[in-house]
Simulated assay, not measured.
Amino acid sequence: MSETATTPAELDDILAAAAIAAQEWGQRPAADRAAALVAAADALDAAASDLIPIAEVESNLAPARLQGELKRTTFQLRLFAELLNDGGYLDARIDHADDAWPMGARPDIRRVLEPIGPVVVFAASNFPFAFSVAGGDTCSALAAGCSVVLKVHSGHPQLSAAVGRVTVQALEGAGAPSGILALVYGTQAGRDALMDSRVKAGAFTGSIPGGRALFDLASSRPEPIPFYGELGSVNPVFVTEAAATARGSEIVSGFVQSYTMGAGQFCTKPGILLVPAGSTMVAELAEAARPAPAKLLNERIQVGYRAALESLF
C-alpha cells in the first residue's frame, strides 16, 4: 500500500478487485462475515502497541485518547459482528402464497436487503481510528457484504497504511476475498473512485464543504449512487431565562469545556450560545478561563484556523 498518490492504473486495478470481491463477499454466510470482523478487531487490539505511537506522531493526540478510540474501533467491529449473527438487519419480509386472498390469488412474495456493491469511504481527520480505515463506515459496509475502497485522509497516511495492513491481513486470513479492503491516496483518486461505475455507494465524515462537493459528484453520475455523509454543524445552544437564572455560570463553564475539548476539533462542539437579553452569561463567557494551547491535528487545519482568526481582525 503506497503512501504516494494512487495512479489511475493502480486505481483501476483496485476497483476491479473490489468489484469481484463484492460479488463473492456478498454471497458469504453472515456468520463468515461476522467471524472476519471479529478477527480484524482482535488483530487491531493486538497491534495497539505499534499503532498508537504512529497515531500520536501524526495526529498530535494524546496516547490515552488514542487508546480509547482504538478500543471504540474494535468495539464497533464486534458490534456489527453481533448484528450479523442476529440477522435482523436483513429486514426480511415474507408474504406466503395465498390462493384465497380477497384481492385475488397472491403469489409467494419475499423481500430482503442485499449488499449494494463496492463502497468508497472517505476517512476523517479528527478520528484517525474510529472514522478511518477500520472505522464505522468501513465495518458497516463490510458487515453488509460490500467491499470497501478507503480514501486515506492526508492527515495520517502512515497510520492508515499500518491499520490497513493489519486489517486486510486479518480479513483475508479469516477467509475474506482479496480486494475486500483497499486504500487509495490523493484527492483526485478519491474523486475518480466515487465517479467510477463499479462503485455503488459513498460515505464521508468531515466538513460541510467537502461533504457537499462529494455529494454533488455522487448525484451527478450517469447512475447516481447513495452518499452517506456525516458533516459538521454550528451546533447552536439555546439557554432559557429560567436556566440562565438558576445555573448560568455552570452553563458557561460547561460551554467552554465543550467547545475547547480536543482543541476544538470535535464536530459535536457547540458553536453558538444564545442567551436571554440582559443575561450576565455574555460577560462571564468573555472572562472564563481557557485551557492551555494545544497542537492541532495537522498543518492544514492549523493554516485554516489561523486564516479564520486573521479574517476577524
Rank of each mutant, 00 (worst) to 15 (best):
S219K: 12
A48D: 04
G262N: 13
D13F: 00
A292S: 15
G135W: 12
A21M: 11
P270M: 12
D99G: 09
I208Y: 04
T245V: 08
G26E: 07
H156Y: 06
L79K: 06
R72Q: 09
V237L: 14
D12T: 14
E10C: 02
F266S: 07
G155Q: 01
S249N: 14
A48T: 11
G304W: 15
R191G: 11
V168D: 06
D12I: 04
E250H: 10
K269E: 13
V120D: 05
T240W: 03
D13I: 06
R198W: 10
T205Q: 02
D50P: 01
L61E: 14
L273E: 07
A283L: 09
L79N: 08
F238T: 07
A170H: 08
L274K: 11
S233K: 07
R306K: 13
T260C: 12
V199H: 12
A182H: 14
T268A: 12
G210I: 08
I272A: 10
G232V: 09
A39H: 03
R106C: 00
R290F: 07
G145L: 02
F129K: 00
R191L: 05
L274N: 09
L274G: 02
A39T: 12
V303D: 15
A182F: 01
P118Y: 12
G155D: 10
A39I: 12
M281C: 09
P270R: 04
A193S: 14
Q265V: 04
V120Q: 07
P177W: 01
Q169D: 15
P157Y: 14
A31Y: 04
G88K: 10
L44A: 03
S49A: 11
A193E: 08
E299P: 01
W25N: 08
R198D: 06
S233N: 12
T205N: 07
A43D: 04
T240P: 01
E82M: 09
A288Y: 01
L273S: 03
G248S: 08
A16R: 14
Q302N: 14
E241H: 14
A21L: 04
T6L: 00
D45M: 06
L11F: 02
G164M: 02
D12E: 13
A31Q: 13
A292V: 07
I225H: 08
E3K: 07
S140H: 00
P53E: 01
S279K: 12
D42P: 07
H153W: 13
L142M: 11
L142V: 01
G202F: 02
I20K: 15
T73P: 05
A263S: 15
G278L: 10
D192C: 07
V148G: 06
V152R: 03
T167F: 01
F227D: 02
F75W: 13
T6W: 00
H153R: 06
N298K: 03
F255C: 09
A47E: 08
S197P: 05
S132M: 12
I14T: 08
A46C: 14
